[in-house]
Design a protein around this nucleic acid. Structure first.
Lengths: 149, 149
DNA sequence: TATTGTTATACTCTATAACTATA
DNA sequence: TATAGTTATAGAGTATAACAATA
């Protein structure tokens, strides 16, 4: 990394604030914090136990208790027992939660459209292709296919 | 905007969370929230009045009072009177604040390096060039140079 | 004993409403 | 009267420590 990357870092930070600003604003319209939005995103395609969710979000499990309490009170999430282990609490989205998540996704699409449309089709594809390796962490050593020799 | 942009939106959102995650973690090491970090970023090269700062951050002025209180107690910011208008309170960074801001910047550089280094030099420049129009809002109509005719 | 979650507590961030001081 | 800031209050998000239930 050299200081030639200053413009790149600046662009990444600014686009991050732009996306987060849109998400924060859209979330606020539905009384959802960024964290609640993330929970909804994670639970869209699977149920998860409290500890798992906390690890995913980088939060303490006690924080999750409150977060899930509030979303459950609003009917967006529900808690369920885990048949295999009596200590575990599974969390999953209700139909109302799914509907809300879809609406938020659509709103984000619309919020980012003006910025994205400043690039033509070819450049959009280029950008998507350049971001992909940036956001995809390389596999950990143990998970890599063994090098042939 | 078409659904062909799904991969692009996904990349933008994921890179946003990656950058914000790094900033949140680095901030936490110094007991600074994302908002405090933004204040430090804004005040690096200029002083600003409370209301101006609040507008910049999209926060209520009362929120700024608390934010500045805490940063001032830590010696990172200071309040000053405005000579032109007795109602105004100017805020500016102390030398300690500047030092901290520099350390945070350096840490962010280091945190993003592994991801950025997954792209070669040419691709980094391409990415910076593609992000630039995305994060630069077009001038409002009144501010545009009049079209010749 | 170790693990999973919840509760109690404390602090930060946030907005709204009411207030003070200055213009 | 209008504007700039602060204070009081209340709710959400966060972590730490102590706890209960289950493994």
């Amino acid at each position: 990394m050299t200081s030639d990357d200053d413009a790149l870092i600046d662009g990444l930070v600014r686009s991050a604030f732009q996306v987060m600003g849109a998400l924060t604003r859209i979330g606020a319209e539905h009384d959802l914090s960024l964290t609640q939005l993330r929970v909804l995103g994670i639970l869209r395609d699977r149920r998860a136990r409290m500890t798992e969710l906390a690890a995913h979000l980088g939060l303490d499990k006690s924080t999750l208790s409150g977060l899930v309490d509030r979303a459950e009170r609003r009917g967006l999430l529900a808690r369920g027992r885990n048949p295999g282990d009596g200590r575990v609490v599974d969390v999953f989205m209700t139909p109302a939660g799914h509907e809300l998540a879809e609406r938020v996704e659509e709103q984000l699409r619309r919020a980012l459209a003006p910025a994205i449309e400043r690039l033509d089709r070819g450049r959009r594809d280029d950008l998507a292709g350049l971001l992909e390796p940036l956001v995809t962490p390389p596999l950990p050593v143990e998970a890599r296919p063994a090098p042939r020799r």
